[in-house]
Amino acid sequence: MSTTLTAPRRSRALPAPATGARRRRVLHWIATHAIAVALAIMFAGPVVLVGLTALMTDEQALTTNLWPESWNWSNFADVFAKSHLLTWTLNTLMYAGLGTLFMLVSSIPVAYALARFRFRGRKLAFLLVITTMMLPPQVVAVPIYLIWARFGLTETLWPLILPMLLGDAFSIFLLRQFLLTIPREYTDAARVDGCSDFRTLVRVILPMARPAIAAVALFQFFYCWNDYYGPLLYTWINQDNWTLSLGLSTFKAFHSVQWNLTMAATLLVTAPVIIVFFFAQRVFIEGVTLTGVKG
């Protein structure tokens, strides 16, 4: 009996090496989380410092004091009052909104054709899509600029928006990658039912590709929001058509040493992106993963 009594004791003693493993696990937990927290500070630090500066007076922003002596929330209002932030925002929204819409209308069919149709030169077409996607925008800038100059559309945002009607390489690429993952059976079934290509696309493909479409739409929108080179090239001479990027890039110059306002403007330009992100985080992360291309 005693053995049966001791047995559990012994078996209780058994976890002894396990406590070592547990301690290792705890240490491991602490170590990894410590690194994570350190990284978190590194990633968040700049934003915090920018936020603090945005609330300082302009005199304090030039000092080495990091904590605002007074909290000047009115700086944000000042940014609107002292710059054309509202105009810039509207322009950016127009560029990003129309650009995204046009891109979707034109790129989805192309991606669909590349993913579904069998035709000669299909591979070549796909390779060309990648080539144009990777092409530095500067390479063909001169002739394209001349084309738009001919139509009198330089100094507007149209040279950046209208080409979206003819497909965007990156979006085509991404959509195609996704559409390839949709099993052929679905489209074949639709075909058997006598659906036209168009109906197949609308009825079968679009509902299934919703996450990918959402992702490319978001990417396109953010790309436009971010774009500096395009607006710099085309709308530089006309302040009425500046976008947020362009406006922000000259902000410090026009408001010389007012770092506080510059930082407030920086935050204002960033905020909408972050807000959108929180609503569409999953779509976003999945989309990014899609760009990674598994081998």
Partner: peptide, 23 residues
């Protein structure tokens, strides 16, 4: 942590650069 580490990527390039030059 994943969200936090990802957030800086969303900061528009111009905004991020201006901020870094200041910092």
């Amino acid at each position: 942590f994943r969200t936090l580490f990802y957030l800086p990527t969303l900061v528009p390039m111009v905004a991020g650069t201006v901020a870094f030059v200041f910092l």
